[in-house]
Computed example of a mutant assay.
Amino acid sequence: MSSLIYLKISTSTNIDIQNFKLYESSFLALYTFNQTKGRGQFNNSWEMIPEENLAFSLMLKSECIKISENLFNFHTATIVRNFIANLTKENVEIKWPNDIILNKKKIAGILIEKKKIDNEEVFIIGVGINILQTDFTNFPKAGSLFTQTKRKFDLKDVAKELFNYFQTQITKSENILEKFNEHLFLKEKIGVFNLKNIRQNGIIKNADENGFLWIDLENDGLKKFFHKEIELLY
């Protein structure tokens, strides 16, 4: 049995979903269009304008996932990327490790947490997708499905379709790394990076199974980096 729950308002869907029971062999998802205290990666906040964007969380038992947590992170990013690409018919990319980019603007972010609830270990996948928002004055690197495609999408339809797509894809585990690298933002292109407050050019080569990103830097050569060790300026 799988369930999709709608909340008119939520502090954080990743938190509120923990109030619901996850039954045997099921997926449980919760969504809202009004999230007041959303969180992103590394304790960053995810600000949300009511009735313009989607906050969505999916909970499933960790025993359903047979791959490493690093690959699971890449797998989840690829699922969200593919969903948005199918929805928009546009070239959607993944900015390592799991930001979703459409026409050089971040339109979606992902936060994965591992929790123990009622003695059951679960993964909670939080997804925020900017759908109808037009004002990104304070977030110049962000955009929405509407700003990037000039098309308006129905919020409820997107939530339901995302839930259905997750159910068909989340337990698959074929060629995860290859699929992630196939759509890696700025792969094999010259980018500008901030490393220890020094800017230099570099070329993203690939992400590996341990979660590292390999970059060929003009000053330091080929190096690998983990989350927050280097910043891509775009």
Rank of each mutant, 00 (worst) to 15 (best):
S2K: 07
L4I: 15
I5V: 14
I5L: 13
L7H: 11
L7K: 10
K8P: 13
K8D: 15
S10A: 14
N14R: 04
I15G: 03
D16N: 14
I17M: 02
I17N: 05
Q18R: 08
Q18M: 12
N19C: 09
K21Q: 12
L22P: 11
Y23D: 11
S25R: 08
S25T: 11
F27V: 13
N34G: 02
T36I: 09
T36H: 12
K37Q: 15
Q41K: 10
Q41F: 03
Q41G: 09
S45Y: 10
E47Q: 14
I49N: 14
E51V: 01
E52W: 01
N53Q: 07
N53V: 02
L54A: 00
A55I: 03
F56S: 12
L58T: 08
M59G: 02
K61I: 05
S62F: 04
S62C: 07
C64Q: 15
K66Y: 04
I67F: 06
S68L: 01
E69L: 06
N70I: 04
L71T: 11
N73E: 01
F74K: 05
H75N: 09
T76Q: 03
A77F: 00
A77T: 00
I84L: 12
I84H: 02
A85M: 07
N86G: 08
K89S: 14
E90D: 06
V92G: 00
I94W: 00
I94C: 00
P97K: 05
P97C: 06
I101A: 00
L102M: 05
N103L: 04
K105A: 03
K106A: 10
K106E: 11
K106N: 09
K106D: 13
I110L: 04
I110R: 06
I112M: 03
I112A: 09
I112D: 06
K115D: 11
I117T: 01
E120H: 02
V122P: 03
I125E: 13
G128L: 04
I129S: 07
Q133K: 10
T134M: 11
P140T: 09
P140G: 14
L145F: 10
F146A: 06
Q148G: 08
R151W: 06
K152T: 12
F153H: 12
D154G: 08
D154M: 08
K156L: 10
D157H: 01
V158R: 01
K160E: 15
L162D: 05
L162C: 04
F163D: 06
F166S: 02
Q169K: 12
E174Y: 08
N175V: 06
L177Q: 04
L177P: 01
E178R: 01
F180E: 00
F180R: 00
N181E: 07
N181C: 05
N181S: 10
E182Q: 05
E182V: 00
L184N: 00
E188F: 07
V192W: 05
L195P: 01
I203E: 10
N206S: 14
D208W: 10
F212N: 15
L213E: 09
I215R: 01
D216S: 11
E218F: 03
N219H: 14
G221A: 09
K223I: 12
K224Q: 14
K228R: 15
E231S: 10
Y234G: 10
